[in-house]
Design a protein around this nucleic acid. Sequence first.
DNA 1: CGCCTATTTGATCTGATTCAAACAATGTGG
DNA 2: CCACATTGTTTGAATCAGATCAAATAGGCG
Lengths: 247, 247
Amino acid sequence: MNASRNPAASPLIRKLERLTDLSDDEKQALTMLPLTVRALEADQDIVRDKDRPSQCCLLLEGFACRYKLLDDGRRQILSFHIPGDIPDLRSLHLPVMDHSIGTLVPCQVAFIPHQSLHDLLLHHPRLAQAFWRDTLIDAAIFCEWMVGLGRRRAQVRVAHLLCELLVRLRAVGLTDDHAYKLPVTQAEIADALGLTGVHVNRNLQELRGKRLITLRGRALSVQDWEGLQRVGEFDPTYLYPWDKAVA
Amino acid sequence: MNASRNPAASPLIRKLERLTDLSDDEKQALTMLPLTVRALEADQDIVRDKDRPSQCCLLLEGFACRYKLLDDGRRQILSFHIPGDIPDLRSLHLPVMDHSIGTLVPCQVAFIPHQSLHDLLLHHPRLAQAFWRDTLIDAAIFCEWMVGLGRRRAQVRVAHLLCELLVRLRAVGLTDDHAYKLPVTQAEIADALGLTGVHVNRNLQELRGKRLITLRGRALSVQDWEGLQRVGEFDPTYLYPWDKAVA
DNA sequence: CGCCTATTTGATCTGATTCAAACAATGTGG
DNA sequence: CCACATTGTTTGAATCAGATCAAATAGGCG
């Protein structure tokens, strides 16, 4: 086996460095991971409900989401994923998928065989902790979404999501001050927030009316970050790590 | 340090044995954990939002829940916990609580110092995997709840929850055929399902009208398991491990 | 330009909430 | 062992946030 260094590993290293401090040895080991990079089109499934994947995927570029489909075709989006995320890390320890993961725009994805990850984590317990930690942060985001879905009004949910995305995208350098590209349709936002597309549209307009945001095409810009956080009842604590909070 | 065997460790061992096979060595190590057992009253917090706990809790007896409070006092319950669960295992790798965990009825709880768990998991990588796996199953339950909160009608949500509790309680031997004790008020069910107590009440009556369940006081009995699963759109796959499925 | 998809607008409907009050169950102390 | 307090369940009526349905407009792009 050729243990050459893989340039696609660097987003992974950057991600883990946000979760923990890495030794040179650990970085070295990460670089050795046999990553297979693939380009995917928009609206393609990466893994599908009921699959038994033998590899995990690392999102290098683009936007993806985790979702479940109901029998009648309705959909609940469970999370959005941005570059640096490993959306199906769960499959490393839960063999059967109970949901799907799909792209929302054209994406670059790196696949990592489960076996390599198992080997890596066995020999590097601190890396294992960091990956575990990553799945726990995912869970913390689920919890925050549950609060929104269960107990918050539509307007609050929309504002909250826009806040969350700003903070997360900023952490990976995909923001321009308080603006970012939101490559997601309103119908997709609706599927994430448990609303209808029509209602998301109206509430987005409300937020514009209050001069909290501007939204032209896919370009979202936060006019009033304080105000948007207030309306969205947004407290970034749940996103960890705390040193990356937006001013 | 006195390494005496702790009898409260056996629920923990039983729990992990549902997740993985344990060697004698691993069981032995688990028995050595310094558990501190405490009795708690109903409606007491075990850990609170913003806390920085130095120990994890293992629920030995009773019913607990994970929840978040909104500013206006509304509450979203994020999960119910039954004997054998370690509801705040997350705190092992995420130091600050972003939600609270409280008892719903009088409980027996065992506390395990983080330090002991860290030591244990460092020397027993397979146990570390099993604990990780446990937090992943938690996350799978969150996802299923999100689907309910976002996309399912009240009646479906109620039926689904009753199904989930039957399967989970059965796995720890707390059912009597298709009946179990549901020591939870309708208001608490409402906080879990994102509904009001009144609406939960009406839908519970609907389920009784359809002869799917009976409910007298805290005693729930599933009359028609097939039917309840159908109404609740319940598929236990997400609960893992699959060998414990209810016939 | 013309096609396709996404956003926007309007009118109407409904599941769930809200508010309020009655009722049942459980427990407590006298 | 009963009177009373407390908490949980049940019922009814009015209201509302968000859904649904349908059609118009606006972008993007080959």
